[in-house]
Structure formats: C-alpha cells, structure tokens
Design a protein around this nucleic acid. Structure first.
Ligand SMILES: NC(=O)c1ccc[n+]([C@@H]2O[C@H](COP(=O)([O-])OP(=O)(O)OC[C@H]3O[C@@H](n4cnc5c(N)ncnc54)[C@H](O)[C@@H]3O)[C@@H](O)[C@H]2O)c1
Ligand SMILES: NC(=O)c1ccc[n+]([C@@H]2O[C@H](COP(=O)([O-])OP(=O)(O)OC[C@H]3O[C@@H](n4cnc5c(N)ncnc54)[C@H](O)[C@@H]3O)[C@@H](O)[C@H]2O)c1
Lengths: 238, 238
DNA sequence: ATGTCTTTGTGAACGCGTGCACAAAGATGG
DNA sequence: CCATCTTTGTGCACGCGTTCACAAAGACAT
C-alpha cells in the first residue's frame, strides 16, 4: 500500500504552475487505465511514456503535489489517482449546463467523457422554442429563459457555450449574471468577462490553421526553396 | 559572440514563434470582421482589443511577418488579411478527411468554419458499413477501406480523427501510412506518430478538468480567507 | 548490517514568451 | 520646410516552463 509517510513539503502546497495543471488530467487518464489493469505501481519513466511527456517534467509536476513516490519503486497508482483527482477537484460533483443544442451541442450532450469524471449535465438550453422538451441524450432541452433559475437551483458554476458566434457574448453575460464562474466556449468569438471568471476556448478552425501553417512549411522545405531570403531581417536603412 | 553554428536550427530559419502562429488566426478573424465593415486601417491598439491580446504583443507578432504598418496611422486591413492568410497557407486549398462519423464527426462535417478558410472536406470515413453512402452535410459517408485511395487521389495531408479512443491509433497509422502529415485528434488518447507528422488534440474532458481545478480554488479562497501569500486553507478529504 | 541497484526529487542552466517603455518613422497641419 | 502628434517597431528585463544531470532515498539481496 501507500507508504503514508506524512512528509509535507511545508511551504509550497499552493501555486501549482498552470502548465502542470493542464497536464494533470493527462496523467490521470493514463493512471486510470493502469488502475483498470490492476497495475499496483508505475515508474515516472513508464507513466511519462504513456502520457506522452518527458519523465523529468512528470516528476517535477508531481513534486508540486507533494512527495508521493517511493525511490527505487515508483508511484502507487491508486494513491496517485486519488491525489490528482482531489487536486483537480474531481472528488466533488460539478453540475454543468450546455447552451446551444445544435449539431455540436447535441454531440457534447452525448459525450460520455462528461459523466466519467465528476461532471454532470444539469441542463441543456436552447433559444429555439421548437426544441423545448425534446430529448437529447436522455435529457429534455429547456428554453433559454430558464437559464437563471436552473443555474441558481442547481448551483451550476460551469457553462458550456455551443451557440452561434453572434449569440455567445449575450449568453455569456447571462451565465455570468446567474452565477457561473467558468465557461468553456466553442463559438469562434472573443468573450469578455469580469475578473474572477475563467474562460477556456476550443476552436477547431484555429487548430486547422495552425496545422496548415506547419504543413505549408513542410511542403516548402521539401521542394526547392523559393523563398527570397534566409534569415536576413527586413530592410535596415542607415 | 559564439560561432552561432550549432546543430539545432530546427525551427529557427524562418522562425515565426509558435505562440505567434497560434495567434495569427485570431488576428485574421478580427481583421476579416473589420474588412467586412469596410474599415480601411486599424491601429495595433484597436486590433489588439478586438482579438483580446496585449497591443505590444500584437505588434511584435506582426514584426515577425515584416513591417506592414505605417507609423502614425496603423495597419492596412486588406493588406494584413492577405499577408496573414498567405503566411498561414490559407491562400491554397487544403483537402481534409474526417474519420469517424458519429455524433461529433457529423457535427464537424456540418461545421461551416471548414469551408470558410481554405479547408475542404474531401471525404467522410467510417468503419460502420451501414453508414456507407448515407449523406452527412451533403457528402456521402465512405467506408474506411477507401482511406488509402482517397488520401492518395486527393492529395490529402490533413486528417481529423473523431473515432472512439480505442480506434484512434490504428486510424492514425493508416492515415500516416497513406501520406497524411497533420492530424487533429478529438479522441482522448495519446497518439504516437513518426517524425515529421504534426498532431494537435482537442480534448473537452481536459478543458473541463482545468476549469474545475480553478473553480475549486476559487471556492476554497472565498470560504477561507483572502490569502496574501502561500499557505492553504486546508482541504480536508473527509 | 552492509552493499548494490533503481528511481525519485530537485538544483541549475537555458530558452521562450510577455509586456514595458521609448526612439524613430511618418502623417498632418501651418 | 518645420513643428507637432500619432503610432509603429523593438531593445530589454523579467518570469515561466523545460530539460539535464545527479545526490540521496529507499528497496532488496546477501
Ligand atoms: N459543429 C462543429 O463541429 C463546430 C466546431 C467548432 C466550432 N463550432 C461552433 O459551435 C457553435 C455551434 O455550432 P453548431 O454546428 O452546433 O451550430 P448549430 O446552428 O447547429 O447550433 C446552434 C444552436 O444554438 C441555438 N442558439 C442560437 N442562439 C441562441 C441563444 N441566444 N441562446 C441559446 N441558444 C441559441 C440554436 O437554436 C441552435 O440550436 C458555433 O458557434 C460554431 O461556430 C462548431
Ligand atoms: N461527442 C463529443 O462531444 C466529444 C467530445 C470530446 C471528445 N469526443 C471524442 O470523440 C470521439 C467520437 O465521439 P462521438 O461522440 O462522435 O462517438 P460516436 O460513437 O458517436 O462515433 C464514433 C464513430 O466512429 C466510428 N468508428 C469506430 N471505429 C472506427 C474505425 N476504426 N475507423 C473508422 N471509424 C470508426 C463509429 O462507427 C462511429 O460512427 C470519441 O473518441 C470521443 O471520446 C467526443
């Protein structure tokens, strides 16, 4: 079992780097897979390979959580799953509302990855009255006018926006007004929110454009470079 | 200084920083909106506000592309749209295949943001034979066995994966084998690919977990006390 | 116990990204 | 042509994130 040695890192508990936070879910996924195969312990090298990161980086990431490894052995899988889950706040229930039940919103509602962690879809909302009452993924679509009461009644703090871009800011304002403090935005718009509200965006179009950039560079390198120059900076009139 | 000839010029020659590349699509979107309103020029301050970034950062980003601004005036909107489009490779056509036409794949196929830039859906592929021939977003779903010939015939270099996690690596291997060199992965798995192949991932579950982390921190702070430096309002695993 | 072997935890160096602050470029007006 | 005003382009400093490399912690065998 876990060594259970209460060796606190004293003056550090807070201030986990953002980059580390973004990788914790990755480690958690790999660890969950190991757990399901009843693997008792794992080394930083093995786990890093499974998560697709550098092993030193992984060890440093874990060091921010405390010293949960055993030298010469590795990390206790179950214990680490618990520690990371707790750190990410997945040991509690997070009600979520999805706004905009079109193509994407419906797909999100059907996504199993929601419930697998502590996330629970509290409601599906749409402005289209003709959708109201219709079942999507077993849940009835409710009208957007119910937003405020639903958020309040369910203590929803996370909202997912899957409306057209033009409606995203308005929906955001209503969500924030109702008490939501974290937003995941799929609409291609820059949202403005007050301090204290977190926004993360998922933008397919941007991802594709980044891929295209690198793709173009690859193509340019393989064929004879037709670029007019190498690395000379522009014009420097003296 | 140093001799400057080290064996590590990887991404330096033409050297637009990766962080800059990731923001160019954002600028492009804001500029396109201005262009549609027939705005002739824009200052770095205005454009930065529209894109939600710092104006100095924006100017530095543009400086990597060359000097396209006019001091005292700003940037010519149309010209900048063209320059960024060219830099991102959007002046050419990028055929894309989507693999896995389930809930998410169908939503992606219906997404208008594809065609709006240079991206064209060359084919929709799925392993489910009963889907073959069915029209999704006006395109017939083709069987996964046609992958290799479709990729070759259409010179597809970008693939989008929307299959279950278990099938993602196998699909990746086939895509890469057929000649695809850029992959956008929606399945929650770490993909391994040979050098020269770019992979970007979109992972809803990870985004939610990151939001949950910050959400938990906010909740802990408001209950406990405003903390000037480091120590924690102990989170007890009860 | 002692020695050997494995693997963690982290100090330190380095590179990248960010934002300030300002000189210079150029427009505009007299 | 000169003065003034606006806005760009960038040098610089700073902080964050990554990676290397290794001392030390602990398991395990003898
Ligand atoms: N489909 C994709 O794969 C995809 C990918 C990336 C981004 N997006 C973005 O996600 C968003 C949704 O895409 P989609 O394909 O599902 O569009 P969609 O048109 O199918 O669905 C949009 C839904 O939002 C609802 N809606 C409109 N205004 C609303 C409002 N004010 N309040 C509540 N609901 C409102 C509509 O009734 C509709 O049901 C768009 O912004 C799109 O650009 C979609
Ligand atoms: N639905 C979402 O909002 C969402 C969000 C995030 C991530 N994801 C991920 O995206 C993927 C797809 O999600 P979904 O909800 O559309 O699932 P889905 O089950 O509705 O669709 C999966 C499709 O992939 C096809 N498929 C299975 N194996 C295949 C193979 N070897 N080759 C080609 N096609 C194959 C299936 O026939 C099916 O049509 C999953 O990995 C899911 O975890 C989905």
């Amino acid at each position: 079992m876990a060594t259970g040695r209460s060796h606190r890192p004293a003056t550090r508990s807070r201030g986990i780097p953002e980059a580390t936070v973004a990788r914790l879910p990755l480690y958690l996924r790999a660890l969950t897979a190991l757990s399901e195969r009843s693997v008792p312990t794992v080394s930083s090298e093995e786990l890093a390979a499974a998560a697709g990161v550098n092993s030193a980086k992984l060890r440093k990431d874990f060091s921010y959580l405390g010293s949960y490894g055993t030298r010469g052995v590795g990390y206790d899988v179950e214990y680490l799953v618990y520690q990371i889950s707790r750190e990410l706040g997945l040991t509690q229930d997070w009600p979520v509302v999805i706004v905009g039940i079109g193509n994407l919103g419906a797909a999100l509602a059907n996504y199993g990855g929601f419930a697998s962690r502590g996330f629970r879809v509290a409601a599906l909302l749409d402005a289209d009255a003709s959708l109201a009452g219709r079942l999507v993924a077993g849940l009835p679509v409710r009208h957007i006018d119910e937003l405020e009461s639903i958020v309040a009644d369910n203590q929803v703090s996370i909202g997912v926006i899957a409306t057209p871009a033009g409606a995203a800011q308005e929906v955001t304002d209503r969500l924030v007004g109702a008490g939501v403090t974290s937003i995941l935005n799929f609409a291609p718009t820059v949202l403005s929110v007050p301090d204290g509200v977190d926004v993360r965006k998922v933008d397919l179009s941007i991802e594709l454009q980044i891929l295209a950039f690198h793709e173009q560079r690859k193509a340019g390198e393989t064929e004879g470079r037709q670029e007019p120059d190498g690395d000379v900076p522009a014009v420097m009139p003296a």
